[in-house]
Amino acid sequence: MDTDTVVITGYGIKAPGINNINQFKDVIETGTCTQEILHGRGHNGSNIVCGVVHEELDSISGQNYKRYPRSSKLGIAAAEEAFTMAKLTNTESARIAVIMGTSGGGILEVEQYANHDNNLKKIPLHYVSLGDSHTLSAAIIKHLDINGQAYTITTGCTASLDAILMGKMFLEAGYADICIVGGSDALLGDWITYGFLKTANIAENIEIAETGVPFSKSHKGFVKAEGSAVVIMERKKDVEGRGAKIWGHVKGASSNNEGLSLLRSDETGRSMIAALKGAVGDVIPTYVNSQALGLIQNDTVEYITHQHLFGSAVPITSIKGMIGHTFGSMGAIQVVSSLLSIEHGFIPPTIKTNGDGFEDLPIVFETKYQNVESVAITNHGMSGNNTCLLITKED
């Protein structure tokens, strides 16, 4: 048995309608949609559907984070839950790396203070830190009171899976003993809204059930959401030495970049096929936890990839109809959902859709209770990376 296997010993989450792991388990098991309509937040006062975390998080465990970017607050809260779950009490001698991914960092707060009318008094003292994406990882280091390496990855929608991939490499190479990895994004401001309205990727004045519909050619647009997820990764031999519980094994990880121009992506699916094949190798996963978010181009790439590698033999599902798309943190949220799926023995349903246009894809429409040995996770971003992961129950 390979004692250098990378394992997960803790995980935490903050997501729309979800304050902790137990609530997340209930949402994905029952197929509950936690999205809502934000009135007057679109173009000319239109309404848009979003996934919102309603906690302010200005104070976390008695510490004041009022001046921190919201993405950092979400990351701190998720990291604290993961750290507690992993029972990491004596870390003074351990080499720890915090590696977090984000798509927009503190752009929400930068946007809020941008209308300063050239009046320096309107600019907060911490304005520079709001625009520094690395505030995310640095804040987690500070909150957990650890002294280690800190890195922030900004590879767009694949950022948190890229952070997990990097953490796996660090552990295997011996650069760290514990890796606290994941992602966080809070992008519900005008910048992200108007950007995706311009490209017609967000629908306006529409009901919750009619947008952000995975695997459907009858619907348009995705649902943007905020959230964070963090996992604790260690080498198996180290975990066995301290008697911690192992929740899953990070068996495979693979990433590539399509090398295309702005806003384009590889519609042939070749890059995603290579990434997923690189992650799973010869393993046939129990199911695929898919990137599918309700954009026909993206979901078609998922379709092409799945049919090429697995055909109808492997079920596929997407949790984005429940919580929406959380950008750079979504991959880590998919990992946490997969860990819960493995622990409790079920495949989460793909809600909102009947698979119109994707009829020959083996989509899971209702919660399927069964033993889950492994989950393949897919993630890709516009004009950017394709990153995939394989999480398994055993070595």
Results as ranks from 00 to 15, higher is better:
6 V>P: 12
13 I>S: 06
18 I>E: 03
19 N>Y: 05
20 N>A: 04
20 N>W: 02
21 I>H: 02
22 N>Q: 15
23 Q>K: 13
24 F>P: 10
35 Q>D: 03
40 G>M: 09
49 V>K: 01
52 V>L: 15
53 V>T: 14
54 H>E: 15
61 S>I: 08
68 Y>R: 09
71 S>H: 12
76 I>Q: 08
78 A>C: 05
80 E>C: 07
84 T>D: 14
87 K>F: 09
87 K>G: 12
93 S>V: 04
102 T>V: 06
106 G>D: 04
111 E>F: 11
113 Y>C: 00
119 N>H: 13
121 K>T: 09
122 K>D: 05
125 L>K: 02
134 H>G: 04
138 A>L: 11
140 I>T: 01
148 G>S: 02
152 T>Q: 02
153 I>D: 06
159 A>G: 13
159 A>L: 14
161 L>Y: 00
166 M>Y: 12
167 G>T: 09
184 S>K: 11
186 A>K: 04
190 D>Q: 12
193 T>M: 14
193 T>F: 12
205 N>A: 11
206 I>F: 07
211 T>Y: 03
215 F>T: 10
216 S>I: 09
218 S>A: 12
218 S>H: 07
221 G>I: 03
224 K>D: 09
225 A>Q: 14
231 V>P: 08
232 I>M: 14
233 M>I: 04
241 G>Q: 15
244 A>G: 11
244 A>Y: 05
248 G>H: 12
249 H>Q: 04
250 V>C: 10
250 V>F: 09
256 N>Q: 05
257 N>R: 03
258 E>C: 14
258 E>F: 04
265 S>K: 01
270 R>E: 15
281 G>Q: 03
281 G>R: 07
281 G>L: 06
286 T>E: 01
286 T>I: 04
287 Y>N: 03
290 S>A: 15
291 Q>W: 02
293 L>H: 04
294 G>T: 11
296 I>R: 00
298 N>Y: 06
301 V>L: 11
304 I>P: 02
307 Q>G: 01
310 F>L: 05
311 G>A: 00
315 P>I: 05
317 T>N: 11
318 S>W: 02
319 I>F: 10
320 K>Y: 08
321 G>K: 03
327 F>N: 10
332 A>I: 06
332 A>D: 04
334 Q>I: 00
339 L>E: 00
340 L>E: 11
340 L>F: 05
342 I>N: 02
346 F>G: 10
350 T>G: 03
352 K>R: 15
354 N>G: 06
356 D>N: 06
360 D>G: 00
363 I>K: 08
363 I>A: 07
377 I>R: 00
378 T>R: 05
380 H>V: 02
385 N>Y: 12
388 C>H: 04
392 T>A: 09
